[in-house]
Structures are given as C-alpha cells and as structure tokens.
Design a protein around this nucleic acid. Structure first.
Length: 556
DNA sequence: GGGTCTTGCGCG
DNA sequence: AAAGCGCGCAAGACCC
C-alpha cells in the first residue's frame, strides 16, 4: 500500500493506493496535530509513505516519536528520473522543468496554501505540484525504463537515505562539549577573551616574526604571508602547507604548526562549539544527493569534515557504546565489480592493495594504493601516472572501464552509475570553448585550453561512475542496516540501536553495549546484502572494519 | 557597507 | 606519494 500525503488549506490530505497505484478509498483529511498518531496507526500496515520532500514531513513525526519504515521522496526521485539515461524517453524526463526540479529542499520555500493543485509563483511553470500526479509520472518512468530493477532500487535507496538523514539529525551525534574544550585548551591554550589569538598561536607567531625579522605580517593573510616569505628569500608560489613542507628553513616548522592550530581554532574551535553543540548533541543537516555523484552533502558545522583532532569529543551516552564501521577500500572494489575484472576480484580476496602487490603489478602496498587512486581520479603525472601502464597490464578490464568513462566525458557526454544516476552535462561555457577551439585557425592557446577543459570533464566522469556507484552501495548498506537495527529490540527509535553518523563509506551506530556484537553482525550482513543487491552474484567482497568503542577517536 | 570570488584546508 | 575526484567552511581579497 502507498499513502500519498499533501497539505491543503483544510489540513492534510491522505490518499491510500494499492500496490498497483489504484485508489483504495476516498481521500481522508487529517489535522496537523493528529497526523503523528494517524501515521503511527497506519504504519502497522507497513505502507510506503509518498510525500513531496521528506524534510517537510518526517522531522515532526520523529519529534512526536513516530518512525516510519519506508517512503517515496518525490523531490529526490524526480531528480534521479529527470537526469537518468535509463529513463530519458519517459514522459517525466520529456516534460518541461518545473516545481519538482528545484534543487533545494522544498522546505526552504515559504508554505503555500491549497498546495494540492497550486501552481508555483512562476507563471512559466505549468507542471502540477500535485504529489499524486507526480507519483504516477514517476511510476510510469520507472516501469518503462529498460531495466526497471536498477532505477527502482536506486529510488528506494535514495528515499531510505532521506529517512536516515532526518533520523540522524533527530537523534544527534553525542558530543561532549567539556571534552572538546579540554582538547582545545591542550592544543591552543585557554579560550581567548575577545578577538586576540589563543596563547599557543601567539607563541608560534612570535617565533615566526623573530625568524622573519618583521612584525607587520598577518599569518592569516595568504598574500601578506607570501610576500614576507619571499622577502626572506624563499622560492614559493603559494603558502599551501604541502608546498611549504618541501622547504628547508627554520620558519617552516612553526608556520606549519600555526596553520594547523589556526585551522582548528577557526573551523572547530570555541565558536563552533557555541554554535553547533546543544544538549550534548551535534545535529547538522544532512543533504542526501547533495553532490552530483550521489554522495551526501551536509550543512551546518561542516559535519563531513570533522577533523581527527576533536573526534575524542564524540562519546557514547553512559551505558551505551559506539560501533564505528567503514567499508574497506570501497571504491576500488566498486570498480572491480563494475568491470567484472576477475583478476582484481582475486586480488581483493583479502586486503586489496596487498593483493595487487601479490599480482606482481607493483612492488609495495603504498604503490598499489597510489596506482588505484590514480586510475580512479585520472592521474597524469607523478607516481600515479607512472604506475598506470603496469596496472593496466595486470587489470585490463578494470582500467578499460574508467578509461571509457573518461573518453565519454571528454566529448561532453553523459555517464551513468550501476543503478542509474547520470552525470550532469557540462555547462554552456564548456561547449562554447570546445566549439571555438574546433574552428579553422583557432590559436594554439585556445586549443590547449579546450583540451585541458575536455580532459578535466573526463576526469570528472571517470570518477563519477566509481564514486557514484560507491555512494549507491553505501546507501543500500545503510538502508539495510537501518531495518536490521530496528529489529534488534523494541522501544522508541532512540531506545534501540540507531545510526548517528554517516560519512561516505563509514557509519557510527549508537547502541546499548549488550547489543554491540549483534550490531557488528548486522553491519556485516547488510554489507554483503548491498553487494548482492547491486551486482548480483559476483565474486567481489565488500569487507568492513568495525570497532566497538566509547569514543570516536578510539576507532582506527 | 554588502555581495561575491579566491585561497586554503578539513574530510572521504 | 603526489597534487589526479567529490564536497563545506572561514577568512581575506576584491569590487561596487
């Protein structure tokens, strides 16, 4: 059963549909206040809730203690179906851009009344905002796809991700502000009063000034710092840390330390604590599908960039544990499965990089890693580029897949992940440059620029198929895990083991300690499920590493 | 004074 | 090991 929800001036309209989308009963109207109880009652029949945007419905349900098993997020699904090459000839994909094509969550838009059949403010918009009409269009697009199972799985996984994103924000990542403050004090010194620097930074700055023999240099200004370094006779093109590391000069050590600590202070210092931690929880907005490749984005507090330095402040509640799990060498394994490269699958029976060494392609594990990253990112120079021929000889099928994806991008075409997420087309400026460089008599400089731009888009599409399919694996892993965790015991959502963090190929589960071993088993089971769901019976393993810990910094 | 671009760096 | 992919954020630079 499906239940399509929409808001109207009279309240919430709920329409029950059978699995073939035929209407079961006339629409019902429910008040906002009654919605959570009404949803909880109907949830026993395990419907799939159909709504315009999960962020507009689910947070208030969670706040009322109501968790749902599954949904269709029409906005996210629409974006996938609109762009996918698997549904390119569908009515949905051929219809004009409209209400369902906005990139940002619909919640960002002020509430309109009579939303069921309302047209958007933009008079050019003719597509209906009616969720039932949109849902039927989406079903049609899926059913008429060449392989409905692929795109269907992707839509289900994306919608499950939308539920998980809301649940993780609702539960929050357990965060000890006092521990965080102690970490800051150890590294930076006491919290400064006004705008002055913390003691440790001031000390480092004094040392740098003494060495440089100047007082008027602002180390936080790259331009000023660059000038000061050049006055001292250092040949540098920028003030990037990796470039400074190559230089032998007494000012470099304190400067690099200053940069590191200054970064901590500005990105995750006291201001960050004041802004983002409340009630012992960090609650960023997770943005499913935030990156073109299908990876999630996040906003508020830089949730996907938590530096290792402060992960010790992520601490399980008293009487609880954190289970930290990550997929080992996920992207190369995804490439193995995408290409059905048996030699690489063989190398991946254990540690993939050791396996590549054992195959004889490269000499060391470090080389294997650089070579694989180079293959997936499109390295042209350095060790990554240098190792490519050997890697290509050992694993021709795998390398052929990424090379083919690069060629597609270089000519401005679209690539598609395993489940059907398609890459965007390059923009107008890209095409204009390609065209202007292809006319008779175009200058060498213009042709070089066009070639560089073309290769750049090729690197994007090369990586897109791997990163995007890895994101699909991660979504399937998490969606399966979510159901498995729910089944581990009864009670409210946050009384059971539950997800509290997700970072591309890594998750954190907050769990009562007596269930930690069971959580580990479910993490592993969900990982093998994900591989089978996406790739079928293929001899590619997706091992995960797990750690049961009290705080995040104890993992890895 | 405010808005946008650039630089640099954190994460995967 | 090298500077190849995807992001978000803060501060300074730059422009009006």
């Amino acid at each position: 059963m499906y239940v399509v929800l929409s808001r109207s001036s009279r309240g919430i309209v709920a329409l029950r549909l059978a699995d073939d989308a035929s209407e079961i009963a006339p629409a019902e109207t429910v008040s906002e206040a009654d919605l959570p109880a009404w949803v909880a009652r109907l949830e026993r029949e395990r419907p799939r809730w159909v709504w315009d945007d999960t962020t507009r419905w689910y947070p208030q349900l969670l706040a009322a203690g109501v968790r749902v098993e599954r949904c269709v997020d029409l906005r996210l699904s629409h974006a996938l179906l609109r762009g996918s090459t698997l549904t390119a000839t569908s009515t949905l994909a051929l219809s004009p851009v409209g209400h369902w094509d906005r990139a940002t969550p619909l919640a960002d838009k002020p509430e309109t009344h009579g939303a069921l059949f309302d047209l958007d403010d933009d008079p050019a918009e003719t597509a209906p905002t009616d969720p039932l009409a949109e849902f039927l269009l989406q079903r049609d697009a899926t059913a008429t796809a060449a392989e409905p199972g692929r795109i269907g799985l992707l839509l289900a996984a994306e919608s499950a991700g939308a539920l998980i994103a809301c649940e993780m924000k609702s539960a929050g990542l357990p965060w000890h502000a006092d521990v965080h403050e102690r970490l800051l004090a150890d590294l930076l010194g006491d919290r400064p009063r006004g705008l002055e620097r913390p003691a440790k930074l001031e000390e480092l700055l004094d040392r740098m000034r003494a060495i440089l023999g100047t007082h008027d240099v602002n180390p936080d200004s790259p331009a000023e710092l660059l000038k000061a370094l050049r006055r001292t006779g250092l040949q540098v093109a920028s003030t990037r840390s990796w470039e400074l590391k190559e230089i032998d000069h007494p000012v470099i050590a304190p400067l690099l330390e200053y940069k590191k600590l200054s970064r901590l202070q500005t990105a995750n210092g006291w201001n960050w604590l004041d802004t983002w931690i409340a009630d012992g929880r960090f609650r960023p907005d997770y943005v499913p599908g935030g990156a073109a490749t299908g990876r999630w984005g996040a906003s508020g507090g830089g949730a996907l960039q938590l530096p290792k330095q402060i992960r010790g402040a992520v601490i399980a509640d008293p009487g609880w544990k954190l289970v930290v799990a990550d997929a080992a060498q996920l992207e190369p394994r995804i490439l193995t499965a995408l290409s059905a490269d048996r030699a690489m699958a063989e190398a991946g029976r254990g540690d993939l990089y050791e396996g590549i060494v054992a195959s004889g392609a490269v000499k060391t594990r470090a080389e294997a890693k650089v070579a694989m990253l180079g293959a997936m990112y499109g390295a042209t120079a350095g060790d990554g580029g240098r190792l490519m021929p050997a890697l290509t000889r050992a694993f021709p099928r795998a390398i052929a897949v990424v090379e083919a994806a690069a060629r597609v991008g270089e000519r401005g075409d679209i690539v598609t992940t395993r489940l059907g997420r398609s890459s965007p087309l390059p923009g107008e400026a890209w095409r204009e440059l390609q065209e202007s460089a292809s006319v008779q008599g175009a200058s060498d400089a213009l042709q070089r620029a066009a070639r560089g731009q073309s290769r750049g888009w090729g690197r994007f599409t090369r990586n897109f198929i791997v990163q995007g399919t890895a994101a699909e694996w991660a979504l399937c892993w998490m969606a399966g895990l979510r159901g498995r965790l729910w089944d581990l015991r009864g009670g409210r959502f946050t009384d059971r083991p539950h997800l509290v963090f997700f970072l591309h190929d890594e998750v954190i589960v907050h769990t009562p300690p007596e269930l930690a071993d069971e959580v580990v088993a479910q993490l592993e089971a969900a990982a093998s499920d994900a591989g089978r769901l996406i790739f079928g019976e293929m001899p590619v393993r997706f091992p995960i590493t797990t750690a049961v810990v009290d705080n995040y910094s104890q993992a890895k």
